[in-house]
Nucleic acid binder design. Structure first.
Lengths: 146, 146
DNA sequence: CCTCCTGTAATTTTAAATTTTACACCATTA
DNA sequence: TAATGGTGTAAAATTTAAAATTACAGGAGG
């Protein structure tokens, strides 16, 4: 899919690490079982999150832990870490308009005018949701199930 | 891609129809040449726009024309016409989390809490851009090129 | 009635995303 | 110090989704 899969898997992993990271060794194998994807995909995602400093991974022995408080981890930060130009990919433009047509020649610039605003608004929305919010929603759901 | 291709092609077509619809017969062949895609794709897009009432197509003889003023055609309306549940597809969730894991079992609901806000904001952004805005950007660019 | 165009369906092709496989490298520990 | 269990990547294979092609029935107008 798009940003979707990878980003939602990343969030899945982060919630998992937050909940269990200090109780047990959270490996890519374990995360892959929970998220229903394969270990290599998880390792790639984990690797991106690590580069951004959101988590740490113990080398050799394995196991991931959160590296900063959940209220500092916004969805924007996660998306950006996973896919640096996610916003362009999310709302893209057809690639081969005819340069011989006045409209074809300009459609790219024209759309960029409007799309840029939409992308910015999207990024703002993503800035306004933190991992803390998501974890709190998760806890809410757990209690509701009682 | 995602919303991208089809939606930007649809906008391309609408601008084209607005500019040339009353001067010449705008066929799917012509639009496909301008947009750099193939006529059947265009016909499918045109068909969706027609169902929504944005344009009319003369049956038999061919040729598309705008059916309502450009300021009534928002990007939201276009996206919705082309792909009714575009916003869910745009920001989706991994499909197979493990139901045996507390997090896997709940991640879908948890993400929906936050994602719904983001989707709503996106739709609002799309509501705020009209075909009129885009056409006016286009005319701006044309004059700039002088 | 011939030509040009639309509307759709079905098939094929192409491209992108995921998974699988593979392996070097690192800590711990037995 | 060698075995175990984990990470980090790359490359190849598979799967899936998107787009193009092909095909054809049907309308309007010359």
């Amino acid at each position: 899919m798009h940003i979707s899969t990878k980003c939602s898997v990343a969030i899945h992993c982060l919630v998992f690490i937050y909940e269990y990271g200090d109780k047990q060794k959270v490996t890519s194998e374990l995360l892959s079982l929970s998220a229903g994807t394969n270990p290599v995909t998880i390792r790639n995602i984990i690797s991106s999150l690590k580069k951004d400093g959101i988590i740490s991974v113990k080398f050799g022995t394995g196991g991931a832990t959160l590296n900063c408080p959940p209220n500092e981890v916004t969805l924007y930060r996660i998306c950006k870490a996973i896919e640096p130009d996610f916003s362009s990919k999310l709302i893209g433009i057809h690639s081969l308009p005819s340069p011989l047509c006045p409209i074809g020649k300009n459609i790219h610039s024209v759309l960029d005018c409007s799309y840029q605003k939409i992308r910015n608004n999207l990024c703002e929305s993503l800035e306004n949701v933190t991992l803390e919010n998501i974890i709190s929603d998760y806890h809410g759901l757990l209690h509701e199930a009682d």
